[in-house]
Design a protein around this nucleic acid. Structure first.
Lengths: 220, 220
DNA sequence: CGACAAACGTGATAAATGTCACAGACGCAA
DNA sequence: TTGCGTCTGTGACATTTATCACGTTTGTCG
């Protein structure tokens, strides 16, 4: 439970707020690749990621998935907040990418905290608004950018500091909402241009500049 | 200015809140088809629509537009809120669909109201979260549904109570982010199936049931 | 090592959408 | 009525993406 207070958000709670928070929070440890929310589920509370990573995605009628966004430590699941505040059902799927630890604050407690604690108000508004931005971005990209550009974007933004992305092409295809074969071909074209090198389950950026140019979509 | 208090949101302000609101609000009347915000602009405050309708859209590198969503009376522009709370630049374009009257609350005043007035907190969170839902929906549709289905959806959800949609095919294409010719062909196929009838600048639904079936995307 | 599964490559082909070019139809205003 | 501008219809075609059907490589584990 102390782990909660490591997060900046919870450092400035009033004593009363702390007490309320603790009474209404349970911490869950979930192994990787587990679905924790389904489309249509009632969200049981606010989810705050402590460690690991959640992936929020939607599933098409034909079964292919597409990632909407991720939730990293310190962040909270916006959709669950939505459900809490608007009393709606959950509109997507969520699963753990890696082993993940989440704090679940029950709905009533969270709502109460929201009215009383400035830091919770901030967390909430910021979470919602980052989410709006991400979604807008995603929407723009899906609308206007070719897969090539979206892939370049994914590789750049998903790569670790040393320029490596550890994902199978199948996973990448899932994130972009397309098929593995398509990814394979695009990757191949990147390799031929010496933008990247590839290995099993990983991509290594060699020409970050060129990739960045792709992302902008301004060299179509 | 009285007009403000017709909105449910502002009915429950504290006296101090009212005063602050009035000191920081200006009301603007804008003619139809005027751009009021550009991508990259700094939002000067919170926009609350009193009458008329705003359209929020993005523009692709190649110039085609696509509607993200509308803002109707009583609603507020979420993106501007984002900008206020996160100090970002505006990520899309906004223009008036019809003659529109908006109340603009300056950033500092709005932020202050947010910390002090429960009703403003609610407005904000609800606005943000509806927006998240709309965007999620749009994103899912763009990802997974064929244009045919998205068009059916637009026609149904845009039609007035008598089943008529007053829009040129060019406008429709703009909303869907596609080309007029494509719309023309899809419309034609709907007409051939007797789902709709068409006239210059309008579409009349004749078989709402069949259209609704299309929307679901479950009869591909 | 050998075998097995997972990851990747590739060709052929179909479907959906975008683009270009132009013709016809409609409605308003002079 | 006669233009003229806007809206719509349509054919031909290029591109992009999806799908199917394989074959090949790579890593892991008994």
């Amino acid at each position: 439970m102390d782990e909660l207070y490591h997060l900046p958000v919870f450092k400035h709670l009033t004593p009363g707020g702390r007490q309320r928070l603790e009474s209404g929070t349970s911490i869950k440890q979930i192994k990787r690749a587990n679905r924790i929310l389904y489309k249509g589920a009632m969200a049981s509370g606010a989810y705050i990621v402590l460690r690991g990573r959640l992936r929020v995605f939607s599933i098409s009628p034909s079964g292919t998935e597409a990632t909407l966004y991720f939730i990293d430590p310190g962040e909270t699941c916006v959709l669950a907040l939505n459900c809490l505040f608007q009393d709606l059902r959950y509109p997507a799927w969520v699963e753990t990418e890696t082993d993940t630890r989440v704090a679940v604050v029950t709905g009533p407690v969270y709502r109460r905290l929201f009215t009383e604690e400035a830091s919770i108000q901030n967390l909430t508004v910021k979470a919602l608004s980052t989410s709006v931005f991400r979604l807008m971005n995603a929407l723009e990209h899906v609308h206007f950018l070719k897969l090539e550009h979206r892939l370049a974007n994914l590789i750049l933004s998903g790569a670790s500091s040393n320029g490596t992305l550890s994902m199978t092409q199948q996973e990448i295809a899932g994130h972009l909402g397309t098929a593995r074969e398509v990814v394979s071909r695009l990757v191949k074209s990147f390799v031929e241009n010496n933008y990247i090198r590839t290995g099993r389950g990983m991509i290594q950026i060699t020409d970050a500049r060129a990739m960045a140019d792709m992302v902008s979509g301004e060299i179509p």
